[in-house]
């Protein structure tokens, strides 16, 4: 007896650019989880997709801009933040979201990160931190743990890694959170919060790279990563970001910063109004 089948559209389909999918990511990669969380956040917030711009840099996660059904731009390596700054200042009505990797945002693009945070420009930065340069074959990067083996640290990494939430907090971000791809619900909630927040927001997502980093570092498969995240993650909301270093034993997660501070756009608006003579009392 022939059964009747009906095709039901995936509930997240309107948020994805179908023509660019399937994606390029390896099995077990955390980037798909981040994409899922991100578009789920868009769906749950019922935002106007016309006013969302997704900007990415170069690297595995950099392809995410092409997968979201919004205006999107895949920039050069390290430069999604200054590009996003230009978009945001040209049209402050847009919700401008940078999604990129640890190497893109904190090695080649590190200078842009600290200055956008310092200025408190209202862009949101989501970092997929997979501890290495996955796309180029697994080289050491600015978040690779000390002593870890990668393609370019065959005798173990001798560089101290960045503690990204500490860096973001010290640079002036008004919202800072860290989750792993195990914390799908909490990650989604943080993304929703960041999207709604005025000012520079930063979310670090610790993400598995089983095909490349997992092999070199001997962490292992995607399941091994998940088990590590489960075992090592400790929710420490609003604890000192300086103490939130990621180690093999402990991954401090949670919200670390949630404060209010005038945004660059607000100060720019006020200054412009004054310059145009619309406000009395100006010079």
């Amino acid at each position: 007896m022939a059964e009747q089948t009906t095709q039901i559209a995936h509930p997240l389909e309107p948020f994805l650019r179908k023509t660019t999918i399937p994606h390029i990511w390896c099995p077990g990669c955390g980037d798909g989880t981040i994409l899922n969380s991100f578009v789920t956040a868009l769906k749950e917030l019922e935002v106007n997709l016309d006013k969302i711009a997704v900007i990415s840099g170069i690297g595995c996660i950099g392809r995410i801009a092409g997968y979201t059904n919004t205006d999107s731009f895949h920039t050069t390596h390290g430069r999604p933040i200054p590009f996003a700054v230009g978009v945001k200042l040209a049209n402050p009505e847009l919700n401008v979201i940078v999604i990129s990797g640890d190497g893109d945002l904190f090695a080649i693009g590190g200078n842009h990160f600290i200055h956008a945070a310092r200025r408190n420009i209202g862009i949101k930065v989501i970092c997929s931190n997979n501890f290495n340069y996955g796309m180029t074959g697994g080289q050491q990067g600015p978040t690779t743990p000390l002593a870890s083996r990668t393609a370019t640290t065959p005798f173990g990494n001798i560089e101290h890694p960045f503690n990204l939430v500490h860096l973001a907090a010290a640079s002036g971000a008004v919202y800072v959170a860290r989750w792993t791809t195990l914390h799908v619900r909490r990650m989604t909630e943080s993304i929703k919060k960041a999207i709604q927040k005025e000012g520079f927001s930063f979310i670090e997502i610790v993400s598995p790279c089983p095909e490349i980093y997992g092999k070199a570092s001997k962490i292992g498969t995607a399941m091994d990563f998940m088990n590590w995240f489960k075992k090592a993650s400790v929710i420490q909301n609003f604890s000192d970001p300086a103490q939130a270093e990621i180690t093999a034993e402990k991954i401090p997660v949670g919200e670390f910063v949630d404060v209010e501070k005038p945004t660059f756009e607000k100060l720019l608006r006020e200054m412009t109004a004054q310059a145009q003579g619309k406000v009395t009392g100006g010079a």
Partner: peptide
């Protein structure tokens, strides 16, 4: 009613210019 921003370097300057251009 325009926007001036001093960026952190020239790489950022041209990136922001391209972004602003894409935003119209």
């Amino acid at each position: 009613g325009g926007t001036y921003i001093q960026m952190e370097d020239e790489i950022a300057s041209i990136a922001a210019v391209i972004g602003a251009s894409y935003a119209g």
